[in-house]
């Protein structure tokens, strides 16, 4: 849909005189006064932002009641471009920041958008505990297999043998399987898509927006500037094509058994969609009787 509108634009088509009143299709939901963004050409983050906005629209979310929280890194910059209540926090700490926000105002749909290094290396502990608690927040993790902003260092997702600026002879660390980890830690909803699957990704984001509990969506995203350059080469489009060719959609796959290798298939899908009591519900219902009983004592003070 977005592409169709763009293609109809006279500027893109290059046929008519430039018009000055053309609106970006996501005008209002993007901070247009901050464009152009800082991301490299060929990066998957633009597609993720588009899918996020589309997903919220599909979900029918009240945009005044959505907060976006990011950590640090290329993906950490997402919060700054989305025209919602948005916070660009410290490295790895988006999830506890979002947890505090959500627990203090349960009306907010609270979405963490951050990268694989931010969420699974420096912030890994927060992710597994938020999933364990089943805090009612959504986490969109953009996985480009590398630390992009700092110049291409090894991430906890970097495949074995892949080169990075801190693995000049090839990576010798076992990577995390992000969906497996989120599922094992207790997430209520777990999905994986790539930046090529923009519609499926938007659908998952829409499901998560209206779902209670901890929702985790991994998005495989091309980084032509550092990951591709140090490894297979090619442009962002080449990487997207390769993701497409390697993708196997299997919603029934066991998320703990689908790690991503250097050239293996990438299993995508909506793997887990379960309902279990959220942290908020457990606070409200689980201790209500005991709290009410204690409040009787306080009433008599």
């Amino acid at each position: 849909m977005q592409n169709e509108i763009c293609c109809e634009s006279p500027i893109i088509a290059g046929t008519a005189e430039p018009e000055t009143n053309i609106q970006h299709p996501m005008e209002g939901l993007l901070r247009m006064d901050r464009m152009p963004h800082i991301w490299c050409s060929g990066c998957g983050l633009g597609s993720v932002v588009t899918a996020f906005v589309e997903g919220l629209k599909k979900a029918g979310s009240d945009f005044d009641k959505v907060a976006v929280v990011s950590g640090i890194g290329c993906t950490g910059r997402v919060a700054g471009y989305i025209n919602l209540d948005s916070f660009h926090t410290t490295h790895g700490r988006a999830i506890p920041f979002a947890t505090g926000l959500k627990m203090a105002n349960n009306d907010m749909t609270t979405v963490v958008i951050s990268g694989d290094g931010d969420l699974f290396a420096i912030g890994g502990n927060h992710l597994i505990h938020a999933a364990r608690r089943n805090v009612d927040i959504n986490v969109i993790c953009v996985n480009n297999f590398i630390y992009g902003m700092t110049g291409g260092q090894t991430a906890p997702t970097t495949p074995l043998q892949a080169r990075s600026s801190t693995a000049p002879y090839g990576n010798y660390e076992q990577p995390f399987n992000l969906v497996g980890l989120a599922a094992a830690a207790g997430a209520s909803y777990v999905a994986r898509w790539s930046a090529m699957h923009v519609r499926r990704l938007a659908d998952s984001i829409a499901v998560a927006a209206n779902k209670k509990g901890f929702c985790f969506i991994e998005v495989i995203s091309p980084c032509p500037t550092v990951f591709a350059r140090k490894n297979m080469g090619g442009t962002g489009l080449d990487l997207l094509k390769s993701f497409g060719e390697r993708t196997v959609i299997d919603h029934d796959a066991d998320p703990t058994k689908i790690p991503i290798g250097m050239n293996d298939e990438i299993v995508c899908g909506n793997f887990i969609n379960e309902d279990r009591p959220t942290y908020w519900e457990n606070v409200q219902t689980g201790i209500r009787d005991a709290v009410d009983k204690e409040n009787v004592y306080w009433k008599n003070l």
Binding site: R93, I95, P96, F97, A98, L101, M103, N125
Partner: peptide, 19 residues
């Protein structure tokens, strides 16, 4: 909320205060 660590507890009170 008893958090998983001190870092999280500090980050959380910032998020909460914004509400």
């Amino acid at each position: 909320v008893q958090f998983e660590d001190e870092i999280a507890s500090m980050a959380s009170i910032l998020g909460a205060s914004w509400t």
